[in-house]
Design a protein around this nucleic acid. Structure first.
Lengths: 126, 126
DNA sequence: CAGTATCCAGGATGATACTG
DNA sequence: CAGTATCATCCTGGATACTG
């Protein structure tokens, strides 16, 4: 989802779409899952995901924090150190999320196969 | 997810991201859920969702069909009639999907509250 | 009815550079 | 280290018009 301003008030009339739209961006779910094992520093999250830009990670973490899914803890040291962790709310999301991931894991074979076998409707020239 | 070409080969190295990226667009999950009760005509799906354009619905249905989640049945009548329905694979997705929706339904209150209470880090001028 | 083709705007994302 | 600011890009999705 995507073109709709993801950063807006998040006030889609339908509460489900309201929440799901946020998780539907490219990184939220991934970041959430990365944090699942426990608190982690900014850089570690970045390295773990690999192909996320500093900008996107910061932005995503902000939104997750804003939604109450993640906490941000600043350690006043030099160099600075900031830890991110799931809140109880964030952890409660892990369960349904894991279920979805499990589905993806179990069925991606079928999906790939379907994509392979797919013949566009236009070719109905039988 | 979003900026990445959703229509690409869908060959993200990680199978989970590969599948999830597809479902992460603005309409897929919604269309899937709309079809959950049973086969439905194009127009009915469109009306049920309400705020989806003809273009987006057609495109979304195509992708779902391509991924083996939905079937497309053409009745050679005039005017034409096309029914869409979930495949067994599509139905198997309903379960984890419902779990996610249930989560959203149960916790959107908490999320909204968090958004309300949120104070951006910059304001740390205590 | 069920789509497809085209045009267009907004926005999500990435790269780069700079700061505390 | 942990960000923020800015710039450029290119995708997503809406609107509209046309077809079988």
């Amino acid at each position: 989802m995507v073109a709709r301003k993801l950063v807006d008030d998040g006030l889609h009339p339908c509460p489900i779409r309201n929440v799901l739209d946020r998780l539907g961006d490219r990184w939220s779910l991934l970041v959430l899952r990365t944090l699942a094992p426990g608190a982690m520093r900014f850089t570690v999250v970045k390295r773990t995901i690999g192909d996320i830009s500093q900008r996107m990670l910061a932005q995503t973490l902000r939104r997750l924090e804003q939604d109450g899914l993640v906490t941000r803890t600043v350690h006043p040291t030099i160099p600075p150190r900031v830890d991110y962790a799931l809140t109880p709310l964030g952890q409660s999301l892990m369960e349904p999320l894991d279920a979805l991931v499990r589905w993806a894991d179990e069925h991606h074979g079928a999906v790939r196969a379907a994509r392979q076998a797919y013949v566009p409707p236009t070719a109905e020239a039988a």
